[in-house]
Computed example of a mutant assay.
Amino acid sequence: MLSLVLSAELSGVTDLRPKDTEEEPYYYTFKVQCTSCRETHPNWVSFNRFEQHEIPGSRGEANFVWKCKLCQKTHSASITAGPNVYEADEKRAAKKVIEIDCRGLEFTEFKADGEWEAKGAESSTPFTGIDLSEEEWYDYDEKAGDEVSIKEINFQVGRAVGTEVIIRLKWGQTEYKGKLESIDSYMNVLLRDTEEFLDGKNTGTLGLVLIRCNNILWMGSADSVEMTDLGLR
């Protein structure tokens, strides 16, 4: 499970969200990477939360279905929650916009194409057609008689807390499998219910483990890799 996370500084406006209805869906735009061969697609991909596409092999439907050109495997993703609003009192705190269930792929970057909307914090004046692609936005609230703005806009794509992940270290053929407790902007990771694997063999349960960013070679969803005697596959 991945989360698209937003942090921003809102001045004079609140309830920032993508304009996303069934009549006018928002197309979420990402860079996509295959978790099997680690190939990153060179182009941006876009999808919305209302369209469903059939997954080959009669495995149901998903919002996004993608076949990796390198390994020829077909992967999928669906938006499971959101979009959530970002309120003025968040004060640049990170807030999940949407959650995405990914199978065999990961989204690595987000591009804020499309229109967003908000309302005046005091006047409730509606603001539509907001463009966040320039990482700042300015307007004027006539009812409040003051300028409004959205600045310090930052989007991150990361693992949703509570999902099961596998982390490979840079040395020793060591992997850790556990539930994501927390992760910061530097990629320092805290896992709970952690199991350790050496050369693909389970060496025991460690419980709560902090893994610093400079030790991590790779991190992926536990349902997209297989533990073997030769390590991750």
Rank of each mutant, 00 (worst) to 15 (best):
A93W: 05
A94E: 13
A94G: 02
K95D: 02
K96E: 12
V97K: 00
I98M: 05
E99R: 04
E99Q: 13
I100E: 08
I100T: 00
D101V: 00
D101S: 12
C102N: 14
C102G: 09
C102L: 08
R103T: 11
R103F: 15
G104M: 05
G104F: 15
G104L: 04
L105P: 08
E106R: 13
F107D: 03
E109D: 12
E109P: 11
K111G: 02
A112V: 01
A112M: 04
A112D: 10
A112C: 04
D113G: 06
D113P: 00
D113T: 05
G114E: 03
E115I: 03
E117C: 03
A118N: 05
K119L: 03
G120P: 10
G120V: 02
A121Y: 01
S123Q: 10
S123Y: 00
S124I: 00
S124Q: 09
S124P: 06
S124L: 13
T128Q: 01
T128I: 09
G129A: 09
G129T: 02
G129D: 13
L132G: 09
L132S: 08
L132A: 09
S133F: 11
S133W: 12
E135W: 10
E135Y: 11
E135M: 05
W137Y: 14
Y138F: 14
D139P: 06
D139A: 14
D141M: 03
D141L: 02
D141A: 01
E142I: 06
K143V: 04
K143E: 14
A144T: 06
A144C: 04
D146N: 06
D146E: 14
V148K: 04
V148P: 06
S149V: 09
I150R: 02
K151F: 07
N154I: 08
N154S: 14
Q156A: 05
V157C: 11
G158K: 05
R159A: 13
R159P: 14
A160C: 11
A160I: 00
V161S: 03
V161E: 07
G162T: 04
G162L: 04
T163G: 12
E164K: 11
E164M: 13
V165A: 02
I167Y: 10
R168G: 11
K170A: 02
K170Y: 08
K170Q: 12
W171D: 06
W171T: 10
G172T: 08
G172W: 12
G172C: 09
Q173Y: 07
T174N: 05
Y176R: 05
Y176E: 10
K177I: 09
G178S: 06
G178D: 07
G178H: 06
K179S: 12
K179N: 15
K179H: 09
E181I: 13
E181K: 15
S182N: 13
S182C: 03
S182A: 15
D184N: 15
Y186A: 15
Y186I: 03
Y186H: 14
Y186L: 13
Y186G: 10
V189N: 12
L190F: 00
L191T: 08
L191G: 07
R192P: 07
R192M: 14
R192D: 15
R192K: 15
D193R: 04
D193L: 07
T194Q: 04
T194K: 07
E195Y: 14
E195W: 08
E196W: 00
L198Q: 13
L198E: 10
L198N: 10
G200H: 08
N202K: 11
T203M: 15
T203E: 14
